[in-house]
Design a protein around this nucleic acid. Structure first.
Length: 421
RNA sequence: GGAGGGGUCGCAUAGCUCGGUCUAGUGCGCCCGUCUCGAAAACGGGUAGGGUAACACCCUCGUGGGUUCAAAUCCCACCCCCUCCGCCA
């Protein structure tokens, strides 16, 4: 959520940004609502002040006649207040809803562009491997090695679900453990969080009200399944004021992630690239505003470390304005190479949200003892999303004899140096 | 799911029976001052968040409604915590 005062004072700037973001929001409606709200507020506050003062007098009053007269007068004032309050509530609800629909403003460094075709490739790291034998996609490798079972996954849960066996399951677990270890070494505190949250938490991170169609939720109770650990981790400090010295806070968590993906039915149906449930290790940061930029680059570096140590070829892509997510001011993706399908696979998004989420979730900090609270800056980045890392390992590390070599850093966690054979 | 108890200004508590004297008392913690060579103690003062140009005024005593001229206090619904029972990995 943007600061209403910022919109009021810079409406043209906000509108220009929306054009760059290739989106729309009802700014004029917000401006009108803001004016009406402030008018109504000052009226109703004056009336309330009068009623408060006179009511206090009534309590001390001896003379019955004037007392009754005042009570009658205040009854009228009360009716006026009620009328204005009713209108005010409507105006405020509308204003709040419009405000929640306005995306974050892009960072000045973000390249301007219409859509993902204008994203900027920042750098490419590692060599794309060459093979002197016919290479196969991961779904063939996985089935042939007996470590991925699509049929039974579908039997259990429907399309886009699968089962891992043996060293396939172990690879998944090894990756989770190893990734957590790496990030803990980098200074992140591990947390374990609920996988279902209240709607309020989803609003805090920006998933609701706009993107509810991508989420699973319980029909009877107010439980929403997290699409990423970012949601519970960011909401840890919702409605809190962090005292001086608490920042920066770095957290890392492993969670499963649940996504409806209904927008992309028919796309990426083969293999494990896009499922309704997947594992992810995620980092979040809470920092003071002046460190936003440097914290974003170190976050990206911390996430890249995973791809580097796995020796997977990867590239960094910066989102242009037209491809920026609703809440992000700036965002870099990490994409690893999938040799079998010959494509880059998105395994991480590292984003700076400035104070956008913090304002929604009401997460503040006190810069100095006794100082007024300010909104924190939040950041998050995947480190990394599991299934696509598994794809990249299976496809890049496949051998002519049909086996798959295990990356060096994972061997202690796997207990073997290859799958199959 | 059932029965009972409870959610108050950082922490601990008072207030709710009988609505106005609550601009929410007290203790602890913290900050400032007096005293002191300095400190402790003692004493005095201050100590939430939001709206706002504002130490004016308004809002917030779990949340949301209601009654009333006036609600921490009365009524209704919901949420959370504790104790006991039931169920359960």
């Amino acid at each position: 959520m943007l600061d209403l005062r910022f919109i009021r004072e810079n409406p043209e700037f906000v509108k220009a940004a929306l054009v760059k973001l290739n989106t729309t929001a009802r700014i004029d409606e917000i401006l009108a609502g803001d004016i009406e709200r402030r008018e109504l507020l000052s009226k109703v506050e004056n009336l309330r002040a009068e009623r408060n003062a006179v009511s206090k007098e009534i309590g001390r009053m001896q003379d019955a006649a004037t007392r009754d007269q005042r009570i009658a007068a205040m009854r009228q004032v009360g009716e006026q207040i009620e009328g204005i309050e009713k209108r005010l509530a409507e105006v405020e609800i509308n204003l709040q809803q419009r405000l929640l629909e306005v995306p974050n403003m892009p960072h000045p460094a973000v390249p301007v562009g219409q859509n993902d075709s204008e994203n900027r490739i920042v750098r490419t790291v590692g060599e794309i491997p060459k093979f002197d034998f016919p290479i196969r996609p991961h779904w063939e490798i996985g089935e042939q090695l007996g470590i991925i079972d699509f049929e039974r996954g579908t039997k259990l849960s429907g399309s886009r679900f699968y089962v891992l066996y043996g060293l396939g399951a172990r690879l998944e677990r090894a990756l989770i453990n190893w990734m957590l270890e790496v990030h803990i070494q980098q200074g992140y505190q591990e947390v374990w969080v609920p996988f279902m949250v209240k709607a309020e938490s989803m609003v805090g991170t920006g998933n609701l009200p706009k993107f509810g169609e991508n989420l699973y939720h319980d029909a009877e109770e107010d439980y929403w399944f997290i699409p990423t650990a970012e949601v519970p981790m960011t909401n840890l400090y919702r409605d809190e004021i962090l005292e001086p010295g608490k920042l920066p806070i770095y957290h890392v968590a492993y969670t499963p992630c649940f996504r409806r993906e209904k927008m992309s039915a028919g796309k990426d149906v083969r293999g494990i690239k896009r499922g309704h449930q997947f594992d992810k290790v995620e980092m979040v940061k809470f920092v003071e505003p002046q460190y936003g930029d440097q914290e974003l680059s170190s976050l990206l570096d911390d996430a890249e470390e995973i791809a580097r140590q796995l020796k997977l070829p990867y590239r960094i892509v910066e989102m242009c304005t037209g491809d920026l997510s609703f809440v992000a001011a700036r965002k870099f993706d990490i994409e690893v190479w999938g040799a079998g399908s010959g494509e880059w696979l998105e395994v991480s998004s590292c984003s700076l949200f400035t104070d956008f989420q913090a304002r929604r979730a009401n997460i503040r900090y006190r810069p100095e003892p006794g100082a007024r609270p300010e909104y924190v800056y939040t950041l998050n980045g995947s480190g990394l999303a599991l299934p696509r890392v598994v794809i990249s390992i299976l496809e890049n590390y496949q051998q002519p004899d049909g086996t798959v070599r295990i990356p060096d850093v994972l061997q202690p966690f796997m207990g073997v140096d290859k799958i199959g054979g």
